[in-house]
Computed example of a mutant assay.
Amino acid sequence: VSGRIALEMGMDAGFAEQLVHAAPMHDIGKIGIPDHVLLKPGKLDDEELSIMRSHPQLGAEILDKSSSPLIKLAYTVALYHHEKWDGSGYPFGMKGEEIPVEARIVAVADVFDALLSKRPYKEAWPVEKAVEEIKSQANRHFDPQVVAAMLSCLPDLIAINAKWREE
């Protein structure tokens, strides 16, 4: 999904391919989050939320100091994928184009996947409802250009998501 959005935004095929491989590492820091927080079926309390919000930096620590271009890209995605376009995200409160474009792309792709997935704390959403939620968050949570690119290639993204679920 991330790679297809990158292509739709006019990025070259090499970058898009690297992003396809880097994006799945965005939550690697969650291996450092205790299961009682990670798998909690209900709403997280303030302490649990603080623990959960440490995963971007934990992921960056895991991926840091690699000379591999792929791992460097994954580092950036892991560290910044919870920053929000309006500056209300974490861990640094970055906003707009301060956030690396690869993290802005993965943020949209990740939420699209998360909304379409059943989780311990929620049921899977229908595609239409997920798309409406993402559209409603353009200029708040998400870069509006990334959302526009996502909408432009939505049939491809739905097919990619369905294929991934079958595998």
Rank of each mutant, 00 (worst) to 15 (best):
H81T: 06
L58I: 13
L79I: 07
G42C: 04
K95A: 11
E128H: 12
L58A: 06
A103P: 11
I33F: 10
K129L: 10
A78Q: 15
E48F: 05
K30G: 02
P144D: 02
V77I: 12
L73D: 07
I31S: 09
P41Y: 03
A74C: 03
A74H: 04
W85N: 07
H141R: 12
H141N: 06
G93L: 01
R104T: 02
A6H: 11
I99A: 09
K43C: 03
K95I: 04
L38S: 14
G10V: 06
C153N: 02
S117K: 14
A16R: 13
G87I: 02
I134T: 04
V147Y: 08
D110M: 06
Q145I: 01
H21D: 08
K95P: 07
D27G: 02
D110P: 12
V37Y: 15
I31A: 10
I158P: 01
K30T: 05
D45V: 11
P56W: 12
L115A: 01
L19I: 00
P69A: 01
E166K: 15
I33R: 14
E8P: 01
A107N: 11
L116V: 07
S117I: 08
A109K: 11
S136Y: 13
K30D: 01
I99Y: 10
M25Y: 15
A74L: 09
D27L: 00
P24V: 08
A78K: 15
R140G: 05
L157F: 04
L116P: 07
P91T: 00
M52P: 03
Y121K: 10
E17R: 15
L157A: 01
I71V: 15
D45P: 15
L157Q: 00
D46V: 14
G3S: 06
K135N: 00
K163V: 02
G29F: 09
I105V: 10
P91G: 03
I31G: 05
L7I: 02
I62Q: 09
K95R: 15
V37A: 14
D64P: 11
I28L: 13
K30H: 08
E166I: 06
E47A: 12
P155Y: 03
P56Y: 12
Q145P: 02
Q145D: 10
P34E: 11
S117R: 14
I134P: 00
L7C: 07
M11H: 14
W164Q: 12
M94G: 09
E97P: 11
G10N: 12
Q137N: 14
G96S: 05
G42H: 08
E102C: 12
Y90K: 05
H141T: 07
P100S: 09
I31K: 15
I99R: 09
